[in-house]
Design a protein around this nucleic acid. Structure first.
Length: 263
DNA sequence: ATGGTCGATCGTCGA
């Protein structure tokens, strides 16, 4: 089973890129973020024509997450517990193919260290911690993927000297991300590509649209696939489709993917 | 130099 996550930065503006990527890389399950439209505007039929079942959590203009699956989709959850007043479309979870649980999540960017949006980001990580702790007790094959908006280590940043305690790398954000690993979730990319054994600059998933960042490979690794122990046991390969960041009208993120050996 | 470049939507916010 191939599972991929992609911050698409508007599913309507990116439908051509998305369809090309689906045809060329053939993921079984896709976790999308920043679809940027309400559910009625989501190009459901075009994706169904490509062989996918679709589950969407939409919002006007901002955020929006979705799950595409070649297999059945059941038990859909569209709100991250822990804050009933949070109406932003940043979380969707479902069971695909009858027994594999997946979630597509879009962690708040955080605007700037110390702002109200930054505090919302840190609270979001606490909610993820509490929810994943509960999910992990079920001992399922679980994949929680998405745009975490955190570069977990300096090896995930093109120039760490430019990123000291800044947004995306601050100690509090990294602690939030690390707390999920401490629950027992495993970073699929780092499980197969340890930071001291690889060219870390090939693993970036996001490049700013500005200043020619992609041409200079000024990137960060902020999109992640986290696996439960039961999923990690099945992990066989993983990678980043960075070629799709270089196409015409690209998203500013590249897809990240992994394959699991399913019985 | 507090900029730059996108997308949604149509002046301005969010990233």
């Amino acid at each position: 089973m191939k599972i991929a996550s992609w911050n698409i930065n508007s599913v309507r503006a990116r439908l051509e890129n998305l369809a090309t990527w689906l045809r060329e890389t053939e993921p079984d399950v896709v976790l999308l973020q920043e679809t940027k439209c309400i559910e009625d505007q989501f190009p459901r039929e075009a994706l169904e024509d490509l062989g996918y079942t679709v589950a969407v959590k939409g919002q006007k203009s901002y955020n929006g997450v979705a799950i595409l699956s070649k297999f059945s989709i059941e038990d859909v959850v569209t709100h991250l517990p822990g804050d009933l007043e949070d109406l932003e479309a940043r979380y969707i979870e479902a069971v695909v193919g009858g027994k594999t649980r997946v979630a597509s999540l879009y962690v708040p960017n955080g605007q700037d260290v110390g702002t109200e949006k930054y505090l919302y980001k840190l609270r979001f990580f606490k909610r993820l911690y509490d929810h994943f702790q509960r999910l992990l007790s079920h001992r399922e094959t679980l994949i929680v993927g998405g745009d975490y908006n955190v570069a977990p280590a300096d090896s995930d940043v093109y120039d760490p000297s430019l990123f000291q305690s800044r947004l995306l790398v601050s100690p509090e954000e990294r602690a939030g991300f690390r707390s999920l690993l401490n629950l027992g979730l495993v970073d699929a990319i780092r499980a197969l590509y340890p930071e001291h054994n690889v060219d870390n600059s090939t693993l970036y998933t996001w490049w700013d649209y500005r200043q020619g960042s992609f041409a200079k490979n000024n990137g960060l690794r902020i999109d992640h696939l986290l696996l439960s122990p039961e999923a990690t046991d099945k992990l066989s390969s993983a990678g980043v489709d960075r070629v799709f960041r270089g196409q015409l009208k690209p998203s500013d993120h590249a897809p990240v993917w992994c394959t699991l050996n399913m019985p």
